[in-house]
Amino acid sequence: MIIKEEIFIEPFNLSRMLHIYIPDEIKKGERFPVLYMFDGHNLFFDEDATYGKSWGIKNFLDKAEGKIIIVGLECNHEGNMRLCEFSPYSFTDKRFGFIEGLGKITVDWIVDILKPYIDEKYPTLSERKYTGIGGSSMGGLMSVYAVGVRSDIFSKAACVSPFYDHVFGRLANEISKSQFNPDTKIYISWGRKEFRGSKELAIGTEKNLAMARIFSSKGAQVFPHLIIEGEHTEASWEKELPMIFYELDLIK
């Protein structure tokens, strides 16, 4: 089932919708792993999705009999605030102008406020080994960042089509220097059709492989995937769900 509830984000002084998937049938005393995801409105239902197509995660988990809780955090839809809240670093873009990086605040709030709240209210397995983070595009960037700097909390990360423009060097540098728990699994993917031409594809591929090498050097088990027919769309990311959930051992 899907539960929608508002939660107040104190650092940003605003309320935000959570989109939460929990298994339909729960036995007494049964508890579940948790995957926190960005852009929660795009995860489950087409009617909620920004572009009219969701990831279809509910359908996938229902058919797979997935015993997991998904906590989707809806983005801030006002102006460029999604970019701000989902970027760890400030940057300037030709199209969007100056973007103030508030992503560290977002990750700290997820770790310090959201996770304890979810663990108290829902039947979760709260330990690190059962806690993951995931997302696509800016959410993919945030997932790389979150697992890179807070592997004390997240043991798994699904980093789908991560957005690296303007921030890759700072991201790679911070993660390279961070303390890291090697008992971590990381899925990183990028689609060939996301890039305009072979040069952009080569650059994008090298960035993702460079990030994979950084994590591997720290002892993580990394699953890098170039999706040959992959596009920067929810319909494309939906096709990756079996790889994401099974390679990260999110469901059996």
Rank of each mutant, 00 (worst) to 15 (best):
T184A: 05
K4E: 15
Y122K: 01
H166T: 06
I227D: 11
I188D: 03
K218R: 13
T233R: 09
L73N: 02
Y246N: 13
E231R: 08
T106P: 06
L35E: 09
L248R: 04
R16K: 13
I57P: 00
S136G: 11
P242V: 06
A49R: 04
S216H: 10
S87K: 02
E30W: 08
E25C: 11
K193W: 08
R128H: 08
A157C: 10
E234W: 02
D112E: 15
N59I: 02
M211I: 13
C84E: 15
S126G: 12
G103I: 02
G191A: 01
I113F: 10
R82M: 05
D24V: 00
A158C: 09
P116M: 10
A64W: 03
K104S: 09
M81V: 10
D93N: 13
I118S: 04
H225R: 12
G79T: 09
F32S: 06
L141V: 07
D165V: 14
T184G: 04
F32L: 05
E5M: 10
R95F: 12
L250S: 00
S236E: 03
M17G: 00
P116F: 11
R82P: 02
K177W: 00
G40Y: 04
C84Y: 04
S143V: 09
A235S: 14
S155M: 04
D249Q: 12
P242R: 06
E78Q: 13
I110W: 09
Y122C: 01
L248F: 01
D165A: 15
E200M: 12
G56A: 06
E85W: 01
A49D: 04
L241Q: 12
K28M: 12
I68K: 00
Y36P: 00
P242C: 08
E25A: 13
E127D: 14
S15N: 14
S198M: 11
M243Q: 12
K115R: 13
A235P: 01
N208W: 01
K67L: 01
A172D: 14
L241A: 11
S54M: 08
K239G: 13
R192H: 10
I26H: 01
K58L: 09
Y89V: 05
E229G: 04
E5P: 02
Y246A: 05
M142K: 08
I118A: 03
A235V: 12
N42Q: 10
V167E: 01
P242A: 09
E206F: 10
T124Y: 04
S126I: 01
E100C: 06
K156A: 05
D152H: 07
A210K: 14
F12T: 07
I186W: 03
A49I: 02
D249P: 01
E65L: 02
G72W: 00
D165H: 15
S189N: 08
D24I: 00
E78F: 12
K199S: 11
E238N: 15
E47M: 09
H77S: 14
G219S: 08
P116W: 11
H41P: 05
F223D: 00
E65P: 00
F86V: 06
K239T: 14
N173E: 15
K239N: 13
G56Y: 02
S54E: 06
P33H: 03
E206Y: 10
S54A: 15
A64R: 11
N181L: 07
V149Q: 14
F45D: 13
P242E: 06
Y21Q: 01
K129P: 00
S90W: 01
D249H: 11
A235T: 13
G139T: 05
F223C: 03
E47R: 13
D249S: 12
